[in-house]
Design a protein around this nucleic acid. Structure first.
Lengths: 216, 216
DNA sequence: CGGGGATCGTGATAAGTTCTAACTAACTCA
DNA sequence: TGAGTTAGTTAGAACTTATCACGATCCCCG
């Protein structure tokens, strides 16, 4: 996959690695990332505990791989949606579907940081790609109304947007898009809406409508 | 505190309990709730491990107490702000200050659910009080514009608001208030804005401005 | 004011966890 | 075929939560 392993040794190695990651995803999906146990994975694969350390240097290394995969998965999903002609609303629903498909995967990326663990360096590249896709969609919308004071601040602090030609209003719209949808999604996935009776999907749609109508 | 302990036995007991909770907060503040260790707390108090089980039946019981305290603390903070005449903007800044004062405490309440743990029953009452305070402030604002489809949905699913006399538009404004500010706060506290260059406080303020100007 | 009983803290123990070290067995390659 | 690399094993250290049995202490009541 990463490097066409001609030798059967490396082929076997990457296959076992993939199965470890697969089992890890099963555990994460049911119990969350903090409850990930190398011993349990090994037991379920018919191997004994320390054997996994041939494939991952530590538990954190395994979690890092999961985080990387999650970022890549989200980037792929959004890129595919954008390539299929999805506008900002379509990207929003792609994001929501991706989050609902595996809440723990969403938490792994955007939730409370896992203790004793900090993200690897190369996730920032994928994270930047996700932002670029969304900023593109934001810039494609009709420009918003008069510039706000926050727009002025963004015009001076837009290094994170790289050399993206989007105007500050588009960056501001992207930030609103990101934070508002994350607000609804994370509270919904964390179960804070359960028992309140209303439909979270409608709240998500209402927030999205407000975002698309943003030029006030 | 909870029950005026006249007997010295109960007084000592509640005192030790309070010190355990205090040490627990220190640990949570530095390493997060998942990294809370009963042994480490005991060691730091000069006691040996199992002694803590006289005061808390399990680790989850201790976390439950922390969650309860966090909820109560936030409710107290917001109630005090409201009693001091704070409007919705004032409540928003009180919320932000409370969150920034101890990010892990915020995550304990509104973050990714702690694995192998679900919230106790009586937190719902405090949670309801928090919502009531915010809904009050939302209802005090000038009524929003034409009713949205989501307003109609809320009119039919407002059991969570109890017998609060707020109109659906106020409930809708509360939900936007809650989810949008949580979106900015949780991403900021989780460190997703670090390295992007802009000032999260200004984003928070911009979102708040948009909320207050909501009648479009 | 002393005895009886509830309570507190301890060490030992069980069943987990991550992770290291040493060893064996198997496979690959020259 | 022999040498070298690598996979997987068991053993063990240093942790964790949690239970149990025992001794010591303190408090209440007669």
């Amino acid at each position: 996959m990463t490097k066409d392993a001609t030798t059967p040794r490396e082929r076997y190695r990457s296959q076992v690695r993939a199965e470890i990651v697969e089992q890890a995803w099963k555990q994460v999906a049911t119990a969350g990332a903090s409850a990930l146990s190398l011993n349990a994975i090994a037991k379920q694969m018919g191997m004994s505990g320390p054997a996994l350390y041939r494939y991952f240097a530590s538990r954190d290394d395994l979690i890092t791989e999961l985080v990387r995969e999650a970022y890549r998965s989200l980037a792929d999903t959004l890129r595919a949606a954008a390539a299929a002609g999805a506008d900002l609303a379509g990207l929003a629903h792609a994001l929501r579907d991706w989050a609902l498909a595996d809440p723990q995967r969403y938490f792994l990326v955007y939730g409370t940081p896992v203790p004793n663990y900090h993200a690897p360096e190369d996730t920032t590249a994928v994270s930047a790609e996700i932002m670029t896709i969304l900023v593109d969609a934001c810039a494609a919308l009709a420009p918003a109304g008069p510039p706000t004071p926050f727009d002025a601040h963004l015009a001076d602090h837009r290094d994170w947007a790289g050399d993206h030609p989007a105007p500050p209003a588009a960056l501001r719209r992207f930030l609103a898009f990101w934070t508002r949808l994350h607000g609804v999604l994370s509270l919904e996935l964390a179960g804070h809406f359960t028992g309140m009776g209303f439909d979270p999907a409608l709240l998500f749609a209402a927030e999205l409508d407000d975002l698309l109508a943003l030029p006030r």
